[in-house]
Nucleic acid binder design. Structure first.
Ligand SMILES: NC(=O)c1ccc[n+]([C@@H]2O[C@H](COP(=O)([O-])OP(=O)(O)OC[C@H]3O[C@@H](n4cnc5c(N)ncnc54)[C@H](O)[C@@H]3O)[C@@H](O)[C@H]2O)c1
Ligand SMILES: NC(=O)c1ccc[n+]([C@@H]2O[C@H](COP(=O)([O-])OP(=O)(O)OC[C@H]3O[C@@H](n4cnc5c(N)ncnc54)[C@H](O)[C@@H]3O)[C@@H](O)[C@H]2O)c1
Lengths: 213, 213
DNA sequence: CGTTCCTTGTGAAAACGTTCACCTGCGGCT
DNA sequence: AGCCGCAGGTGAACGTTTTCACAAGGAACG
């Protein structure tokens, strides 16, 4: 089966977001140029990305907003709902639970687990926090979110995999070892800070260029 | 001035983290192979990455852990402290404030801003939440974190830039327009979910090679 | 001192991703 | 209808990143 680059998939998400906006504004058609403009992408890149998956546009006209939106939904797997388990009901976990954006895109957090006696049993955003030992029994879950301290992350990942999860969103700053067929995306905020720190260190002392937009 | 790829910088962060671990374990030397092993990188990649910045190893021996650690600290700009302003004292903002990891790496959140009357004046993690209108007056800040709703993100970015910030960590799912010389890193969790959703949709049924990243 | 076993640093090659350039198809206009 | 301008699709060119392969440096040891 063909593989698609991670960057292409990321950009599909961008396009999808732009399409949602444009759709809300009532636009019927959109050109690759306009689709590119809102984010920082060239029109050729847009066309190339979309061409990997099919021919969705019409020459001379551009893309039908509603149609392309539907197509990208299907490509990204957003034409269904996903059952997500959250492990670690701490600061990050609570913030994620409170966020409505995930549900809006089809990601339903249906179970929350923690190991701390203080948290287990409490209700958080309409979900009762369960003990982590109950994870294996929690039915049909497709994705897991790891929001535990780094030392527990690998163990939790193993449990999630054992429970049948094939996609993990990991907030612990650590590479997780998972079997083939399980996808992991790690969000590492410290690394983002370090990347900024590097960028700022590099430009230090450089002549201040005018703010050319 | 020479430019370095974003991926190289990311990996430097990885190496740095491994070095911290290995240092704590008391190891004196480490080979590129061992340095690579803990994350999912080849030893050639490690050597290539490091070679962009200098010759830090010794043939036949590997790298001195303490020395390489110091060098990478300097390269990433972690041999100093950074003053960070946080804008948006909501769910994500509160979670970030509570996190000690940033301070440990030299990132000090020294001011918190919000626009809501409910939040302004409250104390959060030893910092008094200030009204956003006070942002321009808040001394010497190098980085900003945007944890506001998406509709406020661009405006806040403009204010941060006006206040002299040259690095922005953005949690709002939106591309920010900033002048040249200002670095932005956007953490978009919905996009990560969508990336997982895509990966799972692709591998549906058939088991294929796609281990964790 | 020579041999052996490591491991780095780095050109060169390969793989990968992005941009270019152009052909084709479509609607509108005269 | 015929022409024009617009815009998608796509092979080829280009640039960047990763991998390969190996020469050279270094330590240990008899
Ligand atoms: N809070 C942040 O802003 C932030 C920033 C960057 C990275 N992170 C990372 O995110 C993760 C979570 O951070 P946080 O601030 O929410 O931490 P936290 O301490 O607030 O929450 C962690 C939760 O995980 C629970 N837990 C511990 N072991 C567990 C186990 N084995 N099974 C189930 N639950 C378990 C704890 O009881 C706690 O409720 C950490 O790995 C941290 O490094 C957090
Ligand atoms: N919470 C999550 O898990 C999560 C996940 C993904 C993305 N995000 C994004 O992160 C951002 C923050 O999310 P949140 O859940 O923390 O939201 P939140 O509503 O809890 O907090 C937002 C805060 O920003 C403040 N604010 C609004 N306008 C402001 C302005 N102009 N200046 C200063 N402060 C202002 C509000 O008063 C509020 O306190 C949003 O853009 C959201 O899309 C959050």
């Amino acid at each position: 089966m063909k593989r698609f680059s991670e960057s292409t998939v990321r950009r599909l998400s961008h396009y999808y977001r732009v399409l949602e906006e444009v759709h809300a504004e009532g636009q019927r058609m959109i050109s690759s140029h306009l689709l590119a403009e809102r984010e920082d992408i060239t029109s050729a890149q847009v066309r190339k990305d979309l061409s990997y998956f099919g021919s969705f546009g019409r020459r001379g006209l551009g893309y039908n907003v509603e149609h392309l939106r539907t197509e990208i939904r299907a490509i990204l797997g957003l034409d269904r709902r996903w059952r997500v388990a959250l492990v670690g009901a701490g600061h990050i976990g609570a913030a994620l639970l409170a966020y409505r954006g995930f549900r809006d895109q089809g990601f339903d957090v249906v179970a929350v687990f923690d190991s701390s006696a203080e948290r287990v049993g409490k209700t958080l955003d309409e979900l009762v926090v369960q003990d982590i030992s109950k994870l294996p029994e929690c039915g049909d879950i497709e994705m897991g979110v790891i929001a535990t301290p780094v030392r527990a992350a690998q163990e939790v990942a193993d449990m999630l995999v054992a429970a049948g999860v094939r996609g993990i969103l990991n907030f612990a700053p650590r590479k997780l070892r998972v079997p083939e067929g399980v996808a992991v995306r790690t969000v590492d905020m410290t690394m983002e800070f370090e990347s900024l720190s590097f960028a700022l260190s590099q430009t230090r002392g450089k002549s201040r260029r005018r703010a050319g937009e």
